[in-house]
Amino acid sequence: MPEPRRFVIIAAPHTSNWDFLYFLGLTTDLGVKAHFMAKTSLFRWPLGRFMRDMGGVPVERSYNRGQVQQMVEEFSRRDEFMLTIAPEGTRGSVRQWRTGFYQIALAARVPLVCGLMDYGRKVGGLGPAIMPTGDYAEDMKKIMEYYSSVTPRHPERAGNEIIEASQIWDSQSKDSYL
């Protein structure tokens, strides 16, 4: 567990609703109070308290302050903050990961911690901490090396074209992903 306990947990591969339930149990066993982002409307009555108790952090999506900046500000307010993000952005089939998880860690100057649910070996856990350097392609090579042996619950839904995301990252401004 990296110290200080301020980092972005990469929740991958995320191909099933079971991933979330198993991950909650796993983080509890590891003593990790994991947080996640959710739209502000989910934090109103009657779900508000439940969402916060589960580790939810509301993000406002209706104005120009991007989600990345909101999470960077959240990191700056807290001494301990472990933000879990599924880079696929969905449980469905994807070609590439979204890059918000990387942008948040880079801007907040916190490491990325590889989290996993390996259904092939029936294990879950936290892997290495990787400090983002700003070279997305190189950092993703390290991350994907770790995930290369992980079997998702639904392998056909896993994003295998991760390097393609680095080409998009290089060809567009970072702000276009916010």
Score class of each variant (00 low, 15 high):
Tyr146Glu: 11
Lys122His: 14
Asp118Trp: 12
His154Ser: 04
Ala129Phe: 00
Ile130Ala: 05
His154Met: 04
Tyr147Cys: 07
Ala129Lys: 02
Tyr146Ile: 12
Gly115Ala: 12
Tyr119Asp: 11
Met144Pro: 00
Val150Gln: 02
Tyr119Phe: 12
Lys122Glu: 08
Lys142Asn: 12
Tyr119Arg: 03
Lys142Met: 08
Gly127Ile: 10
Glu156Ala: 13
Ile130Ser: 02
Ser149Arg: 15
Ser148Met: 01
Ile143His: 07
Thr133Asp: 04
Pro152Gln: 06
Arg121Cys: 04
Tyr146Ala: 13
Pro155Val: 11
Ser148Val: 04
Gly125Tyr: 02
Gly124Lys: 01
Gly124Arg: 05
Ala137Val: 05
Pro152Ala: 08
His154Ala: 09
Gly127Pro: 11
Lys142Leu: 15
Ala137Thr: 10
Gly125Asn: 11
Lys122Cys: 13
Tyr147Thr: 09
Glu156Thr: 10
Gly115His: 09
Leu116Gly: 01
Tyr146Leu: 14
Thr151Ser: 03
Asp118Gln: 14
Pro155Trp: 03
Glu145His: 14
Gly124Trp: 02
Ile143Asn: 00
His154Pro: 00
Gly124Ser: 11
Pro155Thr: 10
Pro152Asp: 01
Pro155Gln: 01
Leu116Ala: 07
Arg121Trp: 05
Glu138Leu: 14
Gly115Pro: 04
Gly120Asp: 07
Met131Ala: 05
Tyr119Ile: 05
Pro132Asn: 10
Val123Lys: 14
Gly134His: 04
Val123Leu: 09
Ser148Gly: 03
Met131Pro: 00
Leu116Phe: 15
Glu138Arg: 15
Tyr147Pro: 02
Tyr146Phe: 15
Ala129Trp: 00
Thr133Met: 03
Ala129Arg: 00
Thr151Asp: 00
Glu156Tyr: 05
Met140Thr: 09
Gly115Val: 10
Ser149Val: 15
Gly120Thr: 08
Lys122Thr: 14
Leu126Tyr: 06
Glu156Lys: 13
Gly120Ala: 13
Val123Pro: 00
Val123Asp: 02
Tyr119Gly: 04
Glu145Ile: 03
Met144Gly: 05
Ser149His: 15
Cys114Ile: 13
Pro132Tyr: 03
Tyr147Val: 06
